[in-house]
Design a protein around this nucleic acid. Structure first.
Ligand SMILES: [Mn+2]
Ligand SMILES: [Mn+2]
Ligand SMILES: [Zn+2]
Ligand SMILES: [Zn+2]
Lengths: 145, 145
DNA sequence: CGATCGAATGATAACAATTATCATTTAAAG
DNA sequence: CTTTAAATGATAATTGTTATCATTCGATCG
């Protein structure tokens, strides 16, 4: 029994072809940050496809199961990303203002700050989200040439 | 001549009552993070009010002038905040998962990290946005009692 | 001042993203 | 297999935002 099916069973959700298909697409394209519409279009290329309402419903479910999370990259649309098995914590993003490329960023860098926030603000931090804006490695190299 | 009028003049925008009213509301409510709709409703209580289209247009303009910025607090709606004169840099947010309260957070804490990101990822950081999730001081005290 | 003129506004239509509805289909359990 | 509640898909409804366009208004200049 697959890991996904187990997680669904735990909460008495059913494993459907559509749910698996959405998860598969997100896994396959884990480097991109797909919007609901992009996911829907990618699924249409497969046999049958999945209704747009089901895409949205499945994304809500996957988010509730903490298998994915949504991110806002300031381009005005909601995007989704899968949580890979390999990452212990939520990852963050390096956003290039030149080419628009978004690179994932495994942190742990901020963990020491959480203590500092507690001391300074009395706020107990459990989680954080960071976006860094700047110029990516590729664009920096182009500038040099 | 007001500071706002100057900034508008610089780019040959006109100072209108509506633009001033939107800016005033954002200044008055600078601790909250108002949505376009909330701003519109607050303005309706004043004489005349401001059309919703103008509210959106003004928010776009104020953002372009870097007098405000939009934030996403994961409640599915776009919110706006004014940049106070007193803050040198963009501020960040402490979001309480218990009571939903959002506290502003003046950082500089992350500045040392930007160098580290460059060394580790070759990405030159110019700006960053952080959200810390956790339990606020008030909710922590309640828990203790 | 008052005339002039392009910019700004408001009402509302259009659009895009998301959610709700409901008849039909299907996964899972017995 | 049957049964049954859950899930799906087509599509209507809703919501947030932008576009359109006739009307109004702020700033400039005599
Ligand atoms: Mn990512
Ligand atoms: Mn703020
Ligand atoms: Zn780049
Ligand atoms: Zn709280």
């Amino acid at each position: 029994m697959t890991d996904f099916k187990e997680k669904l069973n735990d909460q008495s959700y059913k494993l459907t072809g559509q749910r698996q298909a959405v998860l598969d697409i997100l896994t396959l394209h884990h480097e991109e940050h797909l919007s609901a519409d992009q996911i829907h279009k990618l699924l249409e290329e497969q046999k049958g496809g999945v209704g747009i309402a089901t895409v949205y419903r499945t994304l809500q479910l996957l988010e509730k199961l903490k298998l994915i999370s949504r991110i806002y990259l300031d381009d005005g649309c909601t995007r989704y990303q899968i949580h890979l098995e390999t990452e212990k914590h939520e990852h963050h993003h390096l956003i290039c203002n030149r080419c628009g490329h978004v690179e994932d960023f495994q942190d742990d860098l901020l963990d020491p700050l959480e203590q500092q926030v507690f001391e300074q603000y009395g706020f107990r931090v459990f989680d954080h989200r960071v976006k860094f804006y700047g110029i990516c490695r590729t664009c920096l190299n182009v500038q040099v040439n």
